[in-house]
Amino acid sequence: MSRPPSEVQEHPAEVSSHPGVSRWFRLALVGVSVGALAVVGLRGRLPDPGEFIAALAGAGYGWVAVAALLQVVSLAAFAFQQQRLLDNLGVRLRVRRLMAITLARSALSISLPAGAAVSTGYAIREYQKAGVSRRIGAASAVVSGLASIGGLTLLYVVGGAGVLARDPDTYLSWRPLVVVAALAGITTAGIVLGRWFSARPRRTPAGPSAGAVRDSRAGRLVIRLLGSARGAWQAGAGLRVRDWAVALAYAAVNWLTDLLCLAAATRALGLPVGVTTLAGIYLGVQIVRQVPLTPGGVGVVETALVAGLTASGATAISAAAAVLIYRLISCWLIIPAGGLAAIALRRATTTRPE
C-alpha cells in the first residue's frame, strides 16, 4: 500500500531537519575516514598478527593504566595552561569547559589534514562563544604555540643537563642539540619581536598606492588579517615574564607526561630501552611529525617509533605492540572522546538561556 503524497514529502524533511542525526553522521564519517587512513598508513608495517596479539595479551596492564593516567595529565596540563593564559589576558573560563575544548581540538588536530590550523581556529571560535574576544583568543593561541616550542626546549635542556651531571662521559648527539637551539631561538625571537612591535607607534600607510590597496576587497582583507595578527601577537608578547614562565612550565609538563606515557607503554611490554634513549627517539618523532604528510602523523609516527625502538634493542613485535598501546591512548581514543566533547559543547551553547 503506497503512502499519501503528503507523507512521502514530509518524511525526508523530518529526518534532514533533525540536528542530532546530522551531528552523529558527521562524527561517524570522521571516524570511518580516520580508520581508513590508519589501515592504509600501517599496512605492511606490523608483524605477524598472531604473535602481535600474543604480545599484547602478555602486556603489563598496570603500566597501561599508568600510561592512560599520564595522558590525561598531559591534556589537563594544556587545559590549565589555557586557563592561566586567558586569565592573564583578562578573561576567566572554567577548567571543565577548557578541558572539553582541549579534547575537541585535539581530535581535530589528529584526524584532519592541516589539523593544527583547523584546531586553532576551532578553539578561537569556542572561546568567542564563551565571551572571549577574537583578539584575546588569537593571542592565547600565539602564546600557547610559542610556549609549546619553549616547553619542549626546556624539557630537553634540563634533561640533557641532568644526564651530563650524572655521567659527564655520556655521549649526546649534536643533532638534537641543534634542533633544541633552533627551537629556543624561534621562541625567543617571537617574544622579542612582539615586544618590539608593541613599543612602536602604529603608522597608517600613506600615498595613492596605499589608498588603492585599502579600497580593494583583497587589500582590506589582508589589512584586517594583518591587524588581527599584530594585535594578538602584541597582546601575547605584553604578558609578564612570570606569566610566560608559567605557560612554559605547563607546556613542559604537557610534553613530559606524553613522553612518560610512551615510557609506560614500553615498560608494559618489557622493552630494554632506557628513558634517555627513549627521550631521543621521542624528540626525533616530534620533528618528523611536524611535516604534515598524513593527518596526525598516521603511519609516519608509528613507523618512526618502531624503527627507533628496534634500533635500541627491542624486537619488532614488542616494539609494535608498545607503539600501538601508546598511539591508542595518545591518539586514537582521543578522537571519539573529542567528538563527544564537541557535541557536549554544542549542546551547551544551543541550550544556554538568552
Rank of each mutant, 00 (worst) to 15 (best):
residue 248 L to P: 00
residue 257 T to P: 04
residue 267 R to D: 12
residue 249 A to V: 10
residue 269 L to W: 02
residue 284 G to H: 00
residue 275 V to H: 13
residue 246 V to W: 14
residue 244 W to G: 03
residue 243 D to T: 08
residue 276 T to D: 15
residue 272 P to F: 09
residue 280 G to R: 03
residue 269 L to G: 01
residue 289 R to N: 11
residue 265 A to S: 13
residue 266 T to Q: 09
residue 260 L to F: 14
residue 258 D to K: 11
residue 267 R to P: 10
residue 259 L to G: 10
residue 262 L to W: 01
residue 246 V to G: 09
residue 238 G to I: 02
residue 278 L to N: 05
residue 240 R to V: 06
residue 251 A to Y: 09
residue 264 A to D: 03
residue 262 L to R: 02
residue 239 L to Q: 08
residue 245 A to N: 01
residue 265 A to Q: 01
residue 279 A to E: 02
residue 241 V to H: 09
residue 250 Y to M: 14
residue 291 V to M: 13
residue 247 A to Q: 04
residue 278 L to E: 03
residue 263 A to K: 15
residue 271 L to T: 05
residue 245 A to D: 00
residue 279 A to S: 14
residue 239 L to K: 10
residue 272 P to M: 06
residue 237 A to V: 03
residue 262 L to I: 04
residue 286 Q to F: 10
residue 291 V to F: 14
residue 291 V to W: 10
residue 267 R to A: 15
residue 239 L to V: 07
residue 238 G to V: 01
residue 272 P to E: 08
residue 269 L to A: 06
residue 267 R to G: 13
residue 248 L to G: 05
residue 258 D to W: 09
residue 250 Y to H: 12
residue 240 R to H: 11
residue 271 L to F: 02
residue 259 L to S: 09
residue 243 D to Y: 07
residue 270 G to D: 06
residue 258 D to R: 13
residue 260 L to K: 08
residue 237 A to G: 05
residue 249 A to E: 01
residue 246 V to T: 11
residue 253 V to I: 15
residue 249 A to D: 01
residue 280 G to V: 02
residue 254 N to L: 12
residue 244 W to A: 06
residue 268 A to R: 03
residue 263 A to L: 15
residue 279 A to Q: 05
residue 238 G to F: 02
residue 273 V to T: 07
residue 267 R to F: 12
residue 287 I to Y: 00
residue 241 V to C: 03
residue 265 A to M: 01
residue 264 A to E: 04
residue 277 T to I: 06
residue 258 D to S: 14
residue 281 I to N: 01
residue 290 Q to V: 09
residue 281 I to G: 00
residue 285 V to D: 02
residue 286 Q to G: 08
residue 240 R to S: 15
residue 237 A to E: 01
residue 255 W to I: 05
